[in-house]
Amino acid sequence: MTATETTSIPDVLKTAESWRGAGRSVALATVVETWGSAPRPVGSHLVIDAEGNFEGSVSGGCVEGAVVSEAIDVIETGKPTTLEFGVADETAWRVGLSCGGRIRVYVEPVS
């Protein structure tokens, strides 16, 4: 038995596999680059389905909402995309990282 089976802490890649395996349309978001103080390290994942359900994190909760809505587009088009978030971003007032860092997130469909 593993830690993930004895507690409720999710394993994002396993969640992605089980959601997709159950026939749900799924996208996977991955932090591919960070600058300055970023809340989650490079390689962190967020899995999203077409209804906007998600598990995992790519930031401390600052930009997940924006990533989820982009991921729904990725599921529809089937085309991966790269997103950037940070204080220098013009959308900083709406979605940005309060810690002052910048992150780049790759969003791809699981097909």
Partner: peptide, 29 residues
């Protein structure tokens, strides 16, 4: 990500095998 690649990666993780997922950012391969 290809579903079969995801299941392969999860199998490696379950079997405690170190692996690297290589992604070409230009075309997503």
């Amino acid at each position: 990500m290809d579903f079969s690649l995801l299941t392969d990666l999860n199998k490696d993780r379950a079997a405690r095998r170190a692996a690297i997922l290589v992604t070409e950012m230009t075309d997503g391969r």
